[in-house]
């Protein structure tokens, strides 16, 4: 079964053709990162404008690369949320038009579910599993008893981890998006400042990164007031260590409590090298019977292949949208 999937929730316009939820026949991404870099972050109106410019081009390219025509497609899938409302609307409008004009079923997909199912494209998900979804907008621990069932057992109570990265990145003056730069700097520094590991001892799986962010900022400001110069690499390393420690600690604890076969690391921040490496070590040492799956770097960012992978499961569960489908910016799993 072939699904044409469309994703436009933030600053990438993407379309993909996915077969049986696991084979990627094509995955075309038009990335606007260069455009938004000019403004130090995603500007919603500009993102929406780029999406309209590229939407049909990207869809056509996805079909061409998959060497198929719309006639061979069995369903159309689209990200309905969460994300930027104006951006989501482009994918949703396009998907509805294709589904209607080509007489195909329409499958609405949650963006977070997409991130998790990205792992099914180069590996095979086995249930029950635990997914740590980390990105600019999300920090969630999701327990999946079976395919297509999602239970959020922990989430951030304030800032998403990727957002904290971007914010402290601004404070020490690295270009947008900050996460990648902080990660690189951290390799050249030491965890010397011992920033707080928020909620690490608490008996639940929620996260909080605003305290870490504040501690970081206080440190920098206090040093400035005293004309003290702090080593940026050490600051980055200390921040990263604190963030990664909490993420890993809670993930490992949850994976011990829930009867999981796999741990999946998903979302844009899954590209962070410290998080990938440390989580691999921790799973190996502490969870001998659990396998860690990390999608390849090309699938950690936003893309339509992951939406197609998640859509296949939704399709087999009978999930369909009608022509009145709307963008749902605040959608939760």
């Amino acid at each position: 079964m072939k699904i044409l999937a469309i994703e436009s929730s933030c600053d990438e316009t993407s379309a993909a053709v996915i077969e049986d939820g696991c084979r990627q026949l094509s995955n075309v991404v038009a990335s606007q990162i260069k455009s938004h870099k000019r403004f130090g972050g995603v500007v919603p109106e500009i993102a929406s404008r780029h999406h309209v410019e590229f939407i049909t081009l990207v869809i056509e390219e996805a079909l061409q690369r998959a060497q198929c025509t719309l006639k061979e497609i069995d369903a159309v899938a689209v990200t309905e949320g969460p994300g930027l409302v104006g951006a989501l609307l482009i994918g949703v409008s396009a998907a509805k038009a294709i589904a209607y004009a080509a007489g195909l079923p329409l499958i609405p997909v949650n963006h977070i579910a997409g991130h998790i199912y990205a792992a099914n494209l180069n590996d095979t998900l086995e249930f029950p599993l635990l997914a740590l979804v980390v990105s600019g907008g999300h920090t969630e621990l999701v327990y999946m008893k079976e395919s297509g069932s999602y239970e959020i057992i922990g989430e951030t109570r304030d800032d998403a981890v990727g957002e904290a990265y971007d914010k402290i990145g601004r404070v020490i003056g690295v270009p947008y998006p900050g996460g990648k730069h902080i990660d690189e700097m951290a390799h050249h520094g030491k965890d010397r400042y011992n920033f707080p590991r928020a909620m690490i001892k608490e008996d639940h799986y929620d996260f909080s990164f605003s305290g870490l962010k504040s501690a970081f900022i206080n440190k920098v400001h206090n040093a400035q007031q005293r004309d003290e110069v702090l080593d940026s690499n050490d600051l980055a390393a200390s921040f990263q260590a604190a963030a990664v420690d909490v993420l890993i600690d809670k993930t490992i604890r949850a994976a011990k409590e829930y009867p999981v076969k796999q741990v999946v690391l998903a979302g844009g921040v899954a590209a962070n090298s410290a998080l990938r490496n440390e989580l691999a070590k921790a799973v190996e040492h502490e969870l001998p019977n659990v396998r860690l799956i990390v999608p390849p770097l090309s699938l950690t960012g936003d893309n339509a292949a992951m939406i197609g992978a998640a859509a296949y499961i939704a399709y087999t569960r009978g999930e369909r949208a009608e022509l009145d489908l709307n963008a749902k910016p605040g959608l939760s799993l």
């Binding site: 929406s48 999406h51 309209v52 939407i55 049909t56 869809i59 609307l89 409008s93 209607y100």
Partner: peptide, 19 residues
């Protein structure tokens, strides 16, 4: 209205392309 324009334009171009 920007949003209204984009809904119409996206729907129109995708319908025309599909058909």
């Amino acid at each position: 209205s920007y949003t209204g324009l984009r809904i119409a334009a996206t729907t129109a171009k995708t319908l025309a392309w599909t058909l």
